[in-house]
Amino acid sequence: MATSGGAGPQEAALKIVGEADDEAARTYVFRGEDHTLGNALRHVLMRQKDVEFCGYSVPHPSEPFVHVRLQTTGAPARAVLDDGLKQLGGICDALAAQLDKAEGLAETRKRSDSQGTAFPGPGRALENARRLADRME
């Protein structure tokens, strides 16, 4: 989905800022991204090995940039960021798999059926919510 980027010719989609002689500290400027990716990526990076510091900011709400600052204990920041993105993608895969399972349609899911709504009936929590609702006056 080319929602991100929209890389204009004038400016690179990804800008990398830092000192040439220190690979362990970098600021990555993502074009076309916001808190959606910034915060989720920050969280994942903070759980990575070798990360000393990670923070993100959106310098101005009407400019389409998010800055992610990454400082490691020595490993190249680039490799850590790459792994962080991989891990975040991995979490998405895990959720997609859980959705398949929850829908119970993992094998039979077809493209043409995707507009339909065929999932197993509501679970126990719905019954409980209904019971509670019945008691409302």
């Binding site: 759980r47 891990q87 975040l88 991995g90 895969d93 959720l95 399972k101 679970g123 719905l126």
Partner: peptide, 17 residues
């Protein structure tokens, strides 16, 4: 491997559809 950790703790339950 954070993704592996999360995929173990993650739980999804559809309560109404």
């Amino acid at each position: 491997d954070y993704a592996a950790h999360v995929s173990k703790t993650m739980k999804l339950e559809i309560t109404h559809a």
